[in-house]
Write a protein that binds this DNA or RNA. Structure first.
Lengths: 167, 167
DNA sequence: TCAATATTGTTTCAAATGAAACAGTTTCAA
DNA sequence: TTGAAACTGTTTCATTTGAAACAATATTGA
């Protein structure tokens, strides 16, 4: 059995680690904010991913693959969501005259209006919900996440090196 | 039109805010870590949510609703995932003798073995992927997220107060 | 030019998720 | 004891998501 309360040293790798705790909290915070967003959009005729696409679309049109890159998801995920936004009249697909593979996602006037109405309230609610952090702490958090994000973009070299000694 | 590059003051609420930037980064980091996890479990006969359930189950059994609370999801989400884990032989359902409503999710020996094999490697990979943060920064991040999480548990009173003046 | 290759978006399928309705069980107050 | 209310887990349905295969188009190099 593992002696879990080792007073000296940093010998906890099996049970938990600072990294794991940070990641668990990150998942929890993400989940709560997502839930709040979903709740806010209830009654607004929109789901969270639908609202995200609205935010990335424009009147002039944005290629679907640009939106999926920003949302960090596959193109195939967006096909259905865009279909529903079209059914609701908030966006439309237009062919790109310069590249016939591309389909431009364009905000309709109704979509643009929806966004003008929703976006400021959305930002304000987020600001209030993060009130437990001071202005300085928000910036600290942002910088830490930015640094972590940059680090994650570069793959860990150990992934291809195989196993070294465990000690 | 909004003058976006206001040198003094903090007048950017329409375009972006430190809070929104932090949240966007949080979503991006979450997405990348999720993608890495999914990739790691490829070929391990497990999906990410299936692995999470394994982590929360035990040989003695844990009520399904306790697992769903820890995973911050609805009971109904877990029914199907548990079904698949049962089909793979990693867990089983057992009735709780003290409460006939409850179904205890029990690790099988195969599930426990899978977990013994996977968990240390999982933690180690996470640790390496977060290498871009120093030990101190990881703890800083953890504390900021802990504080943010606590704040999110308490609802924002403004949600029920309605609209005050904008200024 | 032309064939090999890459890119874009869709289709299809399996899995996960959120929400509502539901049945069985428990709790609690009258 | 009984009836209302709460709790637990499942079912059902719509939506989202990841992955692979695919058709149409574009790009590249011979």
């Amino acid at each position: 059995m593992s002696l879990s309360t080792e007073p000296t040293g940093r010998q906890q790798s099996s049970e938990t680690t600072p990294e794991l705790e940070a990641y668990t909290l990150l998942r929890q915070v993400h989940s709560m904010l997502e839930t709040y967003n979903r709740y806010d959009l209830r009654g607004e005729d929109l789901t969270v991913p639908q609202f995200m696409i609205l935010n990335y679309a424009s009147r002039n049109g944005v290629p679907l693959s640009e939106i999926s890159a920003r949302m960090m998801c596959d193109n195939s995920n967006l096909t259905g969501i865009v279909d529903r936004l079209i059914a609701k009249g908030y966006v439309e697909r237009r062919p790109d005259p310069n590249d016939r593979r591309v389909s431009l996602i364009c905000l309709t006037e109704a979509g643009a209006e929806k966004l003008r109405n929703l976006r400021p309230r959305h930002h304000e609610r987020l600001r209030k919900r993060m009130r437990s952090l001071s202005e300085h702490e928000v910036q600290q958090l942002r910088e830490l996440l930015r640094s972590l994000y940059s680090g994650l973009l570069a793959p860990v070299e150990d992934d291809r090196k195989g196993q070294e000694t465990d000690g």
